[in-house]
Every structure is written in structure tokens, then in C-alpha cells.
Write a protein that binds this DNA or RNA. Structure first.
Lengths: 220, 220
DNA sequence: TTTATTTTTTAGAAACAACTAAAAATAGAT
DNA sequence: ATCTATTTTTAGTTGTTTCTAAAAAATAAA
């Protein structure tokens, strides 16, 4: 129906507009897609032509209802494949993105619903990101950065804001992953770094402010 | 590394040359790929350029060692995905081809070996076709068309020569699938049709010569 | 062996997706 | 308000992959 390239743009536009930047600018899209502004302009024209987005020159782009529908389905596919790769094939959370990026473009009316059932209808992916359901509805969860938690507070890791390999592998080395129980022991005023205890492992460690802001938790 | 289109041509050339038609002609490839002769000529030049095939004008094309390696890996991926789709997601043997056709192009150094292990290292796909191993070796099995079996002989279905939806669904309706035990009761001289008994189901039926020649069996 | 038929290749064009360089429009600063 | 700097678009190319129509080569037939 649509090319992989078109689908990738739709997904990027959805991502940026859900982050709050609406309408999405050519420059922001070029950065997100790691390409040049002229390439973006070309594609926006094609997407508008196909009624997947409304595009106003020198202003920006917004997805149409159909555009949102397609982009949401892509996010659903991407995240379900990520669950498959980690849960069934044993890949780590920092290894699955590129594969899912390819798998999400496989077209078939029933495939993804079968996969969803096979995986037990997961609501969140290996990074804690929500998986839209078949109707495009997003599961909600009240999460916040670990950096917001008061000293003395306790929380469970439910997601990451930074999906980079470097950060994810750093967390692995620290023993931090989804579901890990954290108690905040102390906040250093000087650089806002946090001393925390990993409750199950009984281990204490210090997290930089940058790291603490990139970790999402649910309060206990 | 290579485009999906290039990969599809490599696979088609391997298929035709394994069938015995070597070198593979432009026309045969055009028919196999459902495209035109000029498109094939263009692609053969590109494949030769990239050292994946040796191409001689007005003569035909043959895969190089590297071409065979890539094409064999593609067949491996295609068939392993077909096993996944039937065994894990519950698709029927006539539904999986198009999905596997897309999934086989997903590039990742470890993915397919993980999938292979997850599936228990299957040696044959849902149609009974052999799955090359990671080194490109093909499992062998002494199979023959059901039409060759003597009256009074017994055999087990291990494959099909015709992968069309129409034939596969026809077999489903008859209760014939891989592993089904068949006893040949009678051969009608007039049109070479076969009267057979499905041993487990205790049911008798008549197969046309065309159908019997498209069913591969292993003698008991 | 010459002619006719079929097959294959070349030539030219279109759609897609990307780029660089240059022009135009917007936004910001004095 | 004008000038400057940034952002965005336009114009022109390149590389893929496909196609149709025409030319060339190989094969088959008389």
C-alpha cells in the first residue's frame, strides 16, 4: 500500500507531534530522520498528495486521521516485534530496534494480530513504551522521571526516555532494568546526582542527574 | 547489503538452476519473476557487476559462489519464517508464502540463527521443502511422486510439487497433509487416476493423475 | 542457405528517494 | 523598519527499478 520510506516519515511525524511539537517542522523531521531538508520537503508533498498529511509551506505538517491510523499501526507493529525478539528469541533490549524497524514494514492483514495473541497481548514493549491496541488506543500509565522522586521515596522502573545503546548497556551493567525496585537514599545538591538502593539486589549506587532524568518510574 | 529486488532475482536464479535449467535464460527468469525481459536484462547486468552472477549476453546467467551463498541463505530464511508462521502463529500452509517473502529480506547477523533455535532446528518447511543449514547444506530425503507408487504400496506424504493456494486448499479439503499415511488401492488405466486410502482416517478417495504427480511421498 | 520466428538487448521514459547548490521566505536583531 | 541569519523550498542530478517500443541476435523452418 505505502512504501517503507513513506511509513518511516509517518512514524516520525507521529512521534514528534505526540511529543508536543505540532505542527512538525521540516527541520525537526530532517533531524529525526537523519536526512536533509530537501528530502523532507519532497516527501511531505507526496504524503499530502496521498491525503496522509496536511502540509503548509513554510509552516509545517500534521497527520490526517488516516495518517495517524497508519503511523499508530506501525508503532504497534514495531513494539510487538520488539517483544517477540526479547521474549521469544532472547535478544537484549538494546539489540532489537533495528530488526523491529525492518519487521514493522511487513504487510499482512492478520499477521500482527496473530503475533499479538502469541505474545499474550503485551501492553508495553521491552523499553516500557506503550503498545497501541488494534483500534489505535494507547495504554496509559502514570510514570515520571526518577529524578522527580523525593528522598526516602520508593519506585519501580517502568521505562526509559533515552533508547540509545550506550544508555541501555550502562543500565544493564548497573543491574537496572524494567521492574527493578529502587529506593532513593539521597540527592546531592551540588550536581543533582542521586544515591539509590536497588532493593532486590541490596546494592547501593549513584546515578547522575542525566541518567535519573532518563529513567521512568512508577511510585510505590 | 543488497536490495530486496536483487535478492529476489538471486533466489529465482537459484531455484531455476537447481531445477536443472542451467544457464538460466532471460525469458525463464522473466516468467518466474512475473516481469518483462528488459527488466531482467537490466538486473542481470547489475548482478554481474556486483560479482553475484556471471552473465553472458544471449546465453544466460549463472550464480557465482557468493551468489549461491546469498540465495541459499534467503531460501533458509524464507522457509524458517514459514515454519514460524505455521507452528507458532497458527497460519495454514497456503497462507504463509507472501509473508515469508517479506520476512526473508530482514537483515540481521543473528536473527535467523536465533529463530532456527527457537523453532528447534527444523529440516523441512510446512510444504516439506528442505531448509538449508547455516552452512548452506541441503538436507536430503528420498521422495517420489505418489503417482509412482505401485498398487498395494503404502507411503507417507512428505511434500508437494505444486505450491498453489488452489492445490493446497484442495488437499486440506481431502484431509491430506504432511505426515498423512496413504495406501494405494487401485490405478485406473483410462486416466491414470489413483484410488487411495487415508489410513489414519479410514477414508477412501480418488486422486487425479495431476494431483498424484504433485504429491511427494516417502515409501513405507 | 536464406527466410521467418522467437528471444534478447538497447533505447528512452517514468516513478521513487535521495542528494547538493541556489533561491526564496520567515524570524530575529539592531 | 531594515538588515541579517536561519530555515525552507526550488531546481537540477544521481541511482534504482520498472516499463514500452524498437533494434539486434539467435534459433527454427523452408
Amino acid at each position: 500500500m505505502y512504501t517503507s520510506s513513506e511509513e518511516n516519515y509517518l512514524k516520525a511525524i507521529l512521534k514528534l507531534s505526540r511529543k508536543g511539537d505540532s505542527p512538525v517542522t521540516t527541520g525537526a523531521l530532517a533531524a529525526e530522520m537523519q536526512t536533509t531538508a530537501p528530502s523532507v520537503t519532497d516527501m511531505l508533498r507526496r504524503l499530502a498528495e496521498k491525503q496522509l498529511a496536511t502540509y503548509e509551506k513554510y509552516y509545517g505538517v500534521q497527520l490526517t486521521e488516516e495518517g495517524v491510523r497508519i503511523a499508530t499501526a506501525l508503532v504497534r507493529r514495531h513494539r510487538l516485534w520488539e517483544v517477540f525478539l526479547t521474549e521469544k528469541l532472547g535478544f537484549l533490549w538494546d539489540e532489537v530496534h533495528d530488526m523491529a524497524e525492518q519487521l514493522e514494514h511487513v504487510q499482512h492483514p492478520e499477521l500482527i494480530e496473530r503475533l499479538d495473541a502469541f505474545l499474550g497481548h503485551p501492553r508495553f514493549d521491552p523499553h516500557g513504551d506503550p503498545i497501541p491496541d488494534a483500534q489505535g488506543r494507547w495504554p496509559e500509565r502514570q510514570r515520571q522521571p526518577l529524578s522527580n522522586v523525593e528522598v526516602g521515596g520508593q519506585a519501580v522502573v517502568v521505562g526509559v526516555d533515552d533508547h540509545s545503546t550506550a544508555f541501555l548497556q550502562y543500565l544493564d551493567r548497573l543491574g537496572i532494568g524494567l521492574g527493578v525496585h529502587i529506593a532513593v537514599l539521597e540527592r546531592v545538591e551540588y550536581d543533582h546526582s542521586l544515591c539509590v538502593r536497588l532493593v532486590e539486589q541490596g546494592r547501593d549506587l549513584t546515578l547522575s542527574d542525566k541518567a535519573a532524568r532518563s529513567l521512568f518510574v512508577e511510585l510505590l
